[in-house]
């Protein structure tokens, strides 16, 4: 196990790299695949301990994804690494047909999720990956909130018999967890409670929503935050409980508001017949621009101020 102190204050992709190397040391079935992004998705530690089990496919994501299926069929536990934008778009058919359709235990670990590679611009922003992956039957979809949770999530998917997609972040997320707890796939973690509003979020948005909740206290608004780290299978009970315990719900995600967590939560509320003020916050169906990450967070109202401001406007209307 990795000392939890080492996981605090590092990005989920850094925590992934440390954890994968730790797991690979003890399990010879683990292989890692990359498409010329070994350094970016933090395979350096695994390369140090087991270079023969790290396969670089060059800039060829489709071949890599198909080969991961072949490795899984031959008794290996493959961790596929690339950027989220390529995992979800360039190699989507291979992920769906070769991996998901055949129910293979491939772990697709996709870094630079959301607009994490901020200056990279729209070509490198992954804002549809959750929508795509949650549409693949049998696929588990996870976005950890920070380094500590990422490490736990990577350990948790080791036991999954089927495929999983884990979105990782390039920027370091705000710290949400300072103690290590095993990750329960499909179980949300309610970090805080609030009677006026519940933010339901994943990834870095969990920490920013917590900070937003602090800001809202000044307005007399009590907001809670649910860390919906597993987007699929979604924790339906947690959504319904949030609807019961607070007067409004707002989802927050670095993703198009179409098809992601917001959509998933809306589906639950609508099918349960729950009438509650509800808002999906994220990227409002447009292509994003290029700028340093903090500036994009501010521009798209995805930082604490932006989330708090959006929540105020939303609550005012109801």
């Amino acid at each position: 196990m990795i000392d939890t102190e080492k996981l605090i204050g590092i990005s989920s992709r850094d925590a992934f790299g440390l954890t994968l190397a730790d797991l690979a040391q003890n399990d010879p079935r683990i292989v890692a695949l990359t498409a010329d992004l070994a350094a970016s998705v933090r395979l350096a530690d695994m390369i140090k301990i087991a270079p023969e089990r790290v396969f670089n496919f060059g800039i060829a994501e489709q071949d890599m994804m198909g080969a991961a299926a072949g490795l899984a069929l031959s008794g290996k536990i493959p961790f596929v690494t690339t950027f989220a934008v390529f995992a979800s778009l360039r190699a989507a058919e291979q992920a769906r047909t070769d991996i998901a359709y055949n129910s293979l235990p491939v772990r697709i670990c996709a870094s630079h999720g959301g607009f994490g590679l901020a200056v990279g611009g729209a070509t490198h922003h992954a804002l549809e990956d959750i929508a795509i992956y949650r549409n693949m039957p049998g696929m588990t979809v996870i976005v950890p909130a920070d380094g500590v949770e990422a490490s736990a999530a990577v350990r948790a998917v080791m036991d999954l018999p089927g495929p999983s997609y884990i979105r990782l972040s390039r920027p370091t997320e705000p710290t949400v967890y300072t103690t290590y707890e095993p990750f329960a796939i499909g179980k949300a973690r309610r970090v805080t409670t609030g009677k006026d509003l519940t933010f339901i979020a994943y990834g870095g948005s969990v920490g920013y929503s917590l900070n937003a909740a602090e800001l809202l206290k000044a307005d007399g608004i009590h907001a809670g935050v649910v860390d919906m780290a597993t987007i699929k299978p979604l924790d339906i009970d947690a959504v319904l409980e949030a609807a019961k315990n607070s007067s409004a719900i707002m989802t927050v995600e670095e993703h198009n508001i179409i098809g992601g967590l917001g959509t998933a939560v809306a589906e639950v509320l609508a099918e349960a017949g729950v009438a509650i003020p509800f808002k999906r916050h994220g990227i409002y169906d447009h292509f994003t621009t290029a700028a340093p990450y903090p500036e994009l967070l501010a521009l798209y109202k995805m930082d604490a101020n932006g989330i708090a401001g959006t929540a105020r406007e939303f609550l005012k209307k109801h």
């Binding site: 299926a69 072949g70 047909t97 070769d98 359709y101």
Partner: peptide, 25 residues
Amino acid sequence: VEISSGSLGHGLPVAVGMALAGKLD
């Protein structure tokens, strides 16, 4: 049958993965 197929361009990458596993073992 080792793997489902139908969509073209998929089998050779899968076979590469199998062959890599065979070499590793």
